[in-house]
Write a protein that binds this DNA or RNA. Structure first.
Lengths: 325, 325
DNA sequence: CTGAAAGCGCTAACAA
DNA sequence: TTGTTAGCGCTTTCAG
């Protein structure tokens, strides 16, 4: 910094002001300093800056799983909004294991970001409290509502209702849901489905599954061996829907000719030409944007918790059709 | 730190030694200090530590795209190996755009990790030099070989040869490759394919495509309208293969009855029950592990570049079969 | 806009 | 094994 000051013929304090984008520097000085900095290959040392200022201008994001497009969208939303707010973003992954999540959060906390967003973390509630006590925190897709932190969730009940509405409008009445057990969002989707069916005077058929192909495949086997198999299956998510479709195809059942299938999440695989799955799109990018904004507010001083509920949309593709005559 | 020292009744220096896992501290003092630290909720301030020590014990990873399982595996390998080496990992994404990559690398550089991994970065070669001059760097899946940095690549030619060997052993002779143009790895795969075909006395059919569904779909349309359409198609990657399969299915061509299709990368979508694609698996997790290890060596003082070439494997699923009679 | 001075929380010699 | 003493590179405050 001294070198830059010398090179530009100004004081160290001025260089500091320029590097911090202070408004009270003349344009002339600013360009001069910037030029010198560039020429000397000077890059402010964040550690020193953080140490002195107590701020990082960085937000940390813990993603339960890098392998899930659902989180990729969330990450993108956070990054986009953070850039607009002049902040940087660092990511860690929990690799789908709770121990991994803990380590990931620890890494984040070690680097002391100004705020963190927890993507569908499956850690215990009191750990959430611990974390929120240390740094501004927003939890995404976590339905517990501790008042110490903000949350952003999807309106799962509304999504389930969209699915039921779509299927009934196609004439389906025997509709089955393969759920996600107690995995995050699972209970909400199941409840939403049951309500939506009941509201239309239909009996909800629910089988236990999970957010993966195998569990859904197995549930599908049971489902199709019922005396009166359903004419439509609403799977826990896209991956589960893929498992169902694979099973139906293997057993010579036409999709959507004989049975309609709906997924959830609108991940890349749903859009694949070879699958083309009707599904429910969650606004994860928006969730990411909102998370960043909530964090910025928190950092700015807000101290009451906010809880957001986002509305999903139905994306109709080729795996749903009129009920067979 | 002072508080902890006071609480434990020792010197600040001792606390520092304990926090750094120094071997020359008595077990008695260590447990005492650790207990106090825990009780007081003390967490060493990394900024101060980094500033004073000049080290972060962190490695940064730039992934071109969070949405690609190919990178997720790489990330996992890096993380796993880093943990074993007592280091932490921070990720950024380039969101598939060059400007994004630059920003992502900048964020990483700002936090001054001990080393960085560049996952299939598409930035210019001289930028690589710039970066490698600032910090220990390893480039993954980048075939330029500047001696200032280590590289880890997949043996694309070998992978292409595996595909050709598999298809010819099934009796195919009219085999087409939809390539990835000049995208990373594309030229290598194309060349490997041509060599493998030529080595077996077969004429290589090559159409230009890219690493996405649409480009492959379009190429497939052209390919199938040839006077003598191929009996097997080797796509640039799994996504491209999905585009090909969608087109074939839409036009009533049976896979693999009429035409066999092979992908590349063995991403999740290849394993999907609804697709079940024969593909080439790249050892990306291993690539991640090797990257970390190379970095650790570099940080440890090695100053000659190492370049690694990893061997892919063929994964046979349901989209390839004997040539139609 | 400048210059000086204090200090962020820690590490790294060195001496005790 | 412990205590002491300098910094690490920056921000912040304040008077000019």
């Amino acid at each position: 910094m001294d070198d830059v000051a010398k090179h530009a013929g100004v004081s160290r304090a001025l260089v500091s002001l320029v590097m911090r984008d202070s408004p009270r520097v003349s344009d002339h000085s600013r360009t001069k300093v910037l030029a010198s900095a560039n020429e000397l290959g000077y890059r402010p040392n964040v550690w020193a800056r953080n140490l002195a200022s107590g701020q990082t201008n960085t937000i940390g994001v813990m993603l339960n799983d890098f392998n899930n497009p659902y989180f990729a969208e969330l990450a993108y939303g956070v990054a986009e909004s953070a850039t607009e707010n002049g902040m940087e973003v660092l990511f860690t992954s929990g690799w789908q294991r709770e121990a991994g999540e803990l380590a990931a959060i620890d890494t984040l906390l070690n680097h002391r970001p100004d705020g963190i967003v927890l993507g569908a973390a499956r850690i215990a509630d009191d750990l959430f409290f611990d974390i929120a006590a240390q740094v501004a925190t927003v939890a995404v897709s976590n339905f517990s509502r501790p008042d110490s932190m903000d949350t952003v969730c999807n309106d799962e009940a509304f999504g389930a209702d969209l699915v039921v509405e779509h299927l009934t409008s196609l004439g389906h009445t025997r509709i089955a849901h393969i759920d996600a057990g107690s995995s995050p969002g699972g209970p909400q989707r199941r409840r939403g489905f049951s309500h939506a069916m009941a509201a239309r005077g239909l009996a909800p058929i629910v089988f236990e599954g999970d957010y993966n192909e195998q569990a859904a495949h197995d549930a599908s086997v049971q489902l199709m061996s019922l005396k009166e198999p359903p004419s439509a299956i609403f799977a826990a998510n896209d991956l589960a829907a893929s498992g169902v479709i694979a099973h139906l195809r293997d057993t010579g059942v036409s999709v959507p000719g004989d049975v309609s299938v709906v997924g959830y999440d609108d991940t890349v695989l749903a859009g694949l030409g070879a699958i083309s799955l009707t599904t429910v799109a969650q606004p994860m990018k928006l969730a990411g944007r909102r998370s960043t904004e909530l964090l910025v507010e928190r950092i700015g001083g807000r101290d009451v918790a906010k809880h957001e509920l986002l509305r999903p949309e139905l994306v109709v593709r080729s795996t749903t059709g009129p009920v067979a005559q």
